[in-house]
Amino acid sequence: MTATKPVRGTVQDGIGVVVLDRAGKHNALTTDMWNQLPTLLTELVDHGAACIVITGANGSFSAGADLREVYRATQSRHEAEAFCQAVVGALTAIASCPVPTIARLSGIASGGGAEIALAADLRIADDTARFQLPLAGLGVVPDHFTYERLAKLVGSSTARYLLLTAETLDAADCLRTGIAHEVTAPEELDRRIDRLTARLRHHSAFALTGIKQMALGHELRDDLPRLSAPMIESFMAGDVARGAQAFLN
């Protein structure tokens, strides 16, 4: 029996789909998964994807980064840099992907999973969706890209509130704050996304790419080391190691 790949992609009728799939782990992302995402997105575009849907298997979007690997990344600056730049590299690859990206939100989107959702162009949720950025409790300072994207979406005041308190937002809160563009019943989620992707597929690829580049603004003005620098420093400060160990215990 062939094991299911923890991150995989397909293209059918011009629609790309990326699936995060770690059964029993709420699709928590390993370093390998973070590193695979940029290449996978490029492959889907090269194979004709006019837009890409990012989704999670097993009833969840993603619980975020695998905490065992978070803890391992606190053990040296080299490991912290490799891990944090893998995360930020995946996020910026989603944001700068030349075709529209859609986060299909069902169940939990927490930590790195929430960051992936923020990096996408559109977020369509069902009413089971829960969104959380529990970074402060773990000792993590977000990367510059994530903070700018969050502040752009919800406003700087609400961004500070969400990051400082790690408040969990339900689907209605996600819609109210602007994190979700639409919320629908679980049984309607796929049909709504199918209608949306069908529309995007028939729009001008040149126009869609141009609009995306315009919308990015200053979010990607820095390279990976500078974008990820605050996150790396937090990994070396000691609190992330203690926080990850506490969660694991």
Rank of each mutant, 00 (worst) to 15 (best):
S60M: 05
Q85P: 02
A166M: 03
G210A: 12
A180D: 04
E115I: 03
S204L: 02
V70W: 07
D222A: 15
K5M: 08
F145A: 04
D21F: 03
L91F: 04
G59N: 02
K25Q: 13
G24W: 09
L169K: 08
R160C: 06
D194H: 10
A215D: 09
V88I: 14
A95H: 14
T209G: 10
R72L: 11
L208T: 08
S60N: 13
G56V: 09
R130N: 02
R149L: 06
P38N: 05
V183Q: 04
R201Y: 06
L91V: 02
L44E: 10
R8M: 03
A50G: 13
A23Y: 12
R130H: 08
L169M: 13
R191V: 13
A117L: 04
R191L: 14
T31V: 13
V19A: 02
A95V: 10
D32P: 08
A229G: 09
T31Y: 09
K212G: 15
P98A: 06
A90G: 09
T158K: 10
D66L: 12
E69R: 11
A93P: 00
G139C: 05
E167M: 13
L122M: 14
F83G: 02
T165S: 15
R149T: 12
I179E: 06
S76K: 05
S204T: 03
S106Y: 05
A80W: 08
L91P: 01
F235L: 15
A23I: 14
G107Y: 10
R8Q: 14
A114K: 09
L105W: 03
R242S: 12
L105G: 03
R123Q: 13
S60R: 08
H181L: 12
H203I: 07
L122C: 05
